[in-house]
């Protein structure tokens, strides 16, 4: 049984469809992220599950119970859903402990459970502080503790880290994922940050045009995107035009082997070549392997553990992005040979 089940859910605002027949099955205890661009309906999806909005069509179930359908609606307070927003939305008139205790039965509000939850999120000694006295990261931790306090059946996180700076974001992401997994809390996290979506999730859904385009483990999403849109969503992608003959595809980067899932493919197609599938060799003064396409390095970015280079290919209006481990092997302006390693994914053009 799925912890959350959305079937054929549609929602439009003022005539514009935001969700259009969306299906999503979230398994019990899984951490699921939904990745999409802003305006793709991610937040709307969570608000429908939480019961703040009603879908125009479709059915939503939580733990097998229909909470929203054309014939039935369970109000938010009876859904037992934990909801954490981007801003945290702590109650400004209550201190941290009272915020956490808000959803608990009256008898438990002063119990040790509040303290326990605060310690769980690493804020054991801040119970008496008020929200405006906390940093952004602390506020999000309190919001999470508050959402967990009333024993929710599912936890919904709406871009919970996006208002934080990069270092804090990574640390909090790690903590939150650890806490949610330890409690085996079914979680749906929506985000527009692919790194976030891939790193914490058991399963990732790509949302676009009001539907889930693909729903799979992070690894298989990355290696086997169903289409180019999904491929471009996750990781960096070079899209090159080519002609396929069943098992290989002929492109400006040479003849590349097709991945198993793309076979058989014939005719004009578009191939996906990840930057780490490319490598560079210095090719000034006629050096380098024969037959490999040549180009000129126009841009470089150094990241410490690796680097990225942009190469303008000779004779083709094509730019490719290349990832190399360690130090950049060449300088901007140098001529290089680009060597591609298959197998690659491709789709009909």
């Amino acid at each position: 049984m799925s912890a959350i089940s959305c079937r054929g859910v549609s929602k439009s605002f003022g005539g514009a469809a935001v969700l259009d027949g969306l299906d999503l099955e979230v398994p019990e205890g899984a951490v699921v992220t939904v990745l999409g661009q802003s305006g793709s309906g991610k937040t709307t999806l969570l608000r429908l599950i939480a019961g703040f909005e009603r879908p125009g069509q479709g059915t939503i179930e939580i733990a097998g119970e229909v909470v929203d359908s054309p014939r039935r609606y369970v109000p938010p307070e009876r859904r037992r859903v934990g909801y954490v927003t981007q801003e945290g939305n702590l109650f400004p008139h209550l201190d941290v402990a009272k915020n956490v205790a808000f959803g608990m039965p009256r008898a438990q509000r002063s119990s040790a459970r509040v303290q326990e939850l605060l310690e769980l999120v690493g804020l054991g000694d801040l119970g008496k502080r008020y929200p405006h006295q906390l940093s952004g990261g602390q506020q999000q931790r309190v919001a999470l503790a508050r959402a967990l306090a009333h024993q929710p059946r599912v936890v919904l996180l709406d871009e919970p880290f996006s208002s934080l700076d990069a270092g804090l974001r990574a640390a909090l992401r790690y903590d939150v994922a650890r806490i949610l997994r330890a409690r085996r809390a079914t979680t749906v996290l929506v985000t527009h940050d692919q790194e976030e979506a891939l790193s914490v999730a058991d399963l990732v859904g790509i949302i676009s045009e009001g539907r889930i385009r693909q729903f799979a483990t992070p690894e298989s999403l990355y290696s086997q995107p169903v289409d180019l849109t999904v491929a471009q969503f996750l990781g960096e992608a070079n899209i090159v035009a080519g002609t396929a003959d069943g098992s290989t595809v002929e492109t400006v980067l040479g003849r590349l082997e097709l991945a198993g899932t793309s076979r058989p493919l014939k005719g004009p197609s578009r191939a996906l070549v990840r930057p780490e599938q490319l490598s560079l060799l210095a090719a000034g003064n006629g050096q380098g392997p024969a037959g490999a396409p040549r180009g000129r390095v126009t841009h470089r970015e150094f990241y410490g553990h690796d680097c990225a280079l942009v190469v303008d290919l000779d004779g083709a209006s094509q730019q490719v992005r290349v990832r190399c481990p360690g130090q950049p092997p060449v300088e901007v302006g140098e001529t290089v040979a680009v060597v591609a390693r298959g197998p690659v994914l491709a789709w009909p053009a």
Binding site: A50, G51, F52, P75, P76, E77, R78, R79, R80, V81, G82, Y83, T85, E87, N89, F91, F102, G103, R146, A147, A149, H150
Partner: peptide, 13 residues
Amino acid sequence: RLEEVGRSLGCGP
């Protein structure tokens, strides 16, 4: 938004 959070925490309107 705060009212919504309150409702998701189990409080009626």
